[in-house]
Design a protein around this nucleic acid. Structure first.
Lengths: 261, 261
DNA sequence: CGTAGGGTTGACAGCTTTCAAGAAGTGTGG
DNA sequence: CCACACTTCTTGAAAGCTGTCAACCCTACG
C-alpha cells in the first residue's frame, strides 16, 4: 500500500529545469522570510526570520506529498506548483477536498488528531517548505510571530473551505463551475498572476469531485459557459471573456422565487 | 444594518432558568480552565489557566452572536447550546456553513481578514466565552499553550469542514442525510451524550442548506431512512435504531460500478 | 506504433427540484 | 385558558437536470 517510489527525496531531482519559475533556485532550504513572502506577510520579515531556515522538498508531477492516513509529522508550505488534497471514501471514491498553490499550508487538518486525514498529490512539478512538528516549538521560540502566522493560514483555509461549500451549494452545475473558475482566478490574482486567464492543472474528474458533480457534467458546463460567451475554453486553458457576465451568472444559488421580495 | 436589539449583553437575562444545563451557573465570566474542559484538553489545566478569565455572554433562541460582515473583534468558545453559522449569498440564499456546539470555536474564519465572513445565530439558549482580539496577546503571554489551543481548534474545524464536504459529495440525498446524522451523533458522543439519540436543534431548511438539498428532500430522506428501519424520526427527535446498517448505507458516495473491482 | 488516460458529446433513466396544499406544532395576545 | 397567526413539517405531482453508460477523438508516453 505505502509505495514510496514517487519521489527521490530532496536530493534526487534538482536539475529538471524549473529554475525560472522557482524563486528558490536550487537551494535545498529556505528561510522563514521566504515563507512570509509566499504567504504575503512581508511586514513580518526581519533578521530573525532570515535566520530561521526550513528544509525544502521538490516533487514532480503526480508525486505524493502526503500519504492519506499516515502519521502527522510536518506541515508543508507550498512555494511553487499545485497540489490536490484528497480523501478516499469507504467505497473507494476519491474526494478532492481542495487545491493548494503558492502560499497555502498543507496538512493543517492533521494537527489536531496526529494523523493525516487528507492526502496531497502534486499536479505539476512543485516545491514545498517542510515545517516539521518537532521543529515547530524551536521555530516559534525564535520567531514568536510564526505561530500567529500558522493561525492566520488556518483561518484563510477555513475561509476557502466556506467558499468551496458555497460552490457546492449551487443547484446548477454551470453555476458551480463558474464559481470554481472565479475562485481559482481570484487566488491567482492574489499572487500577482492574471485574473482573466488560467491554466487548470487538474483534470475534469478532479474538478468534478471537488464540486460534487460528474466529470462529464464539468465538460458540458464549460461548453455551455463558452457558448454563453462568458469564457473561452481550450483544453485546460480557460480565459474569462466577460467577467461581469460571469459574476452575474454565478449569483444564482437556487431558484428563489420568494427571494425577489 | 447593525441592529443589536437581539441581546441585552451579559448582564441582561441571567435568570431564565437554564442553570441545570449550564455548568457555569450565573457567573458572568469563566476561566481558561473552563475553556479547556469544554474543548477536552484537561491535560493543560493548571493554576495559570485558572487565573486567566474571560467574560461570558448568554444568548436566547434566535439571537445573533455574530453579524455577518461585521468587523472581527473576538472569537467565541461555545460553552452550552447550539449555533448555526451562516453566509448569505448574493441572491439572498442563506447558506448554513455549519453548526457549533460545546467546545467549538466560532469566528476563526474572520481572523485572517479582520472581517466576519460568517454570521452566527443561536438555535437555543446558549452561552459563549468571549476571547477578544485585543486580549489575545495578553492571554497568550499568561498561558503560552493558549495559542496552540486555538491552532488545534482551527485544525479540528478544518477536519469538520472536510466531513461536511464528504456529506455534500454524496450523490443521493438519503446518503447525505445519513452522513449528517452520523456526524452529529458522533460529535454528541464526544461530549459524553448518547450516540444513538439526538435532538436536532435546527430546522429541516437549515439541514437542507447545510447539505445542499431542498428542505422537502430532507423530509423525504428522513422518512425513507425510517422506512428502512435505520432510524426513528419524531419531529426533531431522531433515534438511530440500526447503527451498523446506517453506516453501511452511508458508504455509497456514487454509483461506482468500477469500484467493485 | 500501440496503449492508456483525458476530454467531449449523445441518449436515457432516475432523482431532485419546484410548486402546491394540508397537517402539525409554536407563540402571542386577548 | 383559548384562539389566532405563523412557522415548520409532510406529502403529492410534474418538469427539469444530472448521473450513468457508451462511443469517439485527442494527446502523451513507452
Amino acid at each position: 500500500m505505502l509505495v514510496h517510489a514517487e519521489c527521490g527525496c530532496a536530493s534526487g531531482h534538482a536539475e529538471p529545469g524549473a529554475a525560472v519559475a522557482d524563486p528558490i533556485g536550487l537551494r535545498a532550504q529556505c528561510s522563514a522570510s521566504d515563507l512570509l513572502r509566499w504567504i504575503g506577510l512581508i511586514g513580518e520579515i526581519g533578521p530573525a526570520t532570515d535566520a530561521l531556515l526550513f528544509p525544502m522538498r521538490r516533487l514532480r508531477t503526480a508525486a505524493t506529498l502526503i500519504h492519506e492516513g499516515s502519521a502527522f509529522e510536518s506541515l508543508y508550505l507550498v512555494g511553487s506548483g499545485t497540489f490536490k488534497c484528497i480523501q478516499t471514501e469507504g467505497d473507494g471514491y476519491e474526494q478532492v477536498q481542495g487545491f493548494a498553490i503558492r502560499g497555502d499550508v498543507i496538512g493543517l487538518d492533521g494537527l489536531s488528531e496526529g494523523r493525516c486525514d487528507t492526502g496531497a498529490i502534486a499536479l505539476e512539478d512543485s516545491t514545498v517548505a517542510i515545517v516539521a512538528l518537532r521543529d515547530l516549538d524551536d521555530a516559534i521560540r525564535a520567531v514568536p510571530a510564526f505561530e500567529r502566522l500558522l493561525l492566520r493560514a488556518a483561518s484563510r483555509e477555513l475561509r476557502r473551505k466556506n467558499m468551496t461549500l458555497q460552490a457546492m451549494a449551487a443547484v446548477g452545475a454551470e453555476v458551480r463551475v463558474a464559481r470554481f473558475l472565479l475562485q481559482m482566478t481570484a487566488r491567482q490574482a492574489e499572487l500577482g498572476f492574471s485574473g482573466r486567464r488560467i491554466r487548470l492543472r487538474m483534470s475534469r474528474r478532479d474538478i468534478g469531485s471537488h464540486l460534487g458533480i460528474a466529470h462529464e457534467t464539468v465538460s458540458r458546463s464549460l461548453t455551455t459557459l463558452a457558448e454563453l460567451q462568458l469564457i473561452k475554453v481550450e483544453y485546460r486553458e480557460v480565459e474569462i471573456i466577460d467577467p461581469d457576465g460571469l459574476h452575474a451568472f454565478q449569483q444564482v444559488t437556487r431558484n428563489t422565487a420568494d427571494a425577489l421580495s
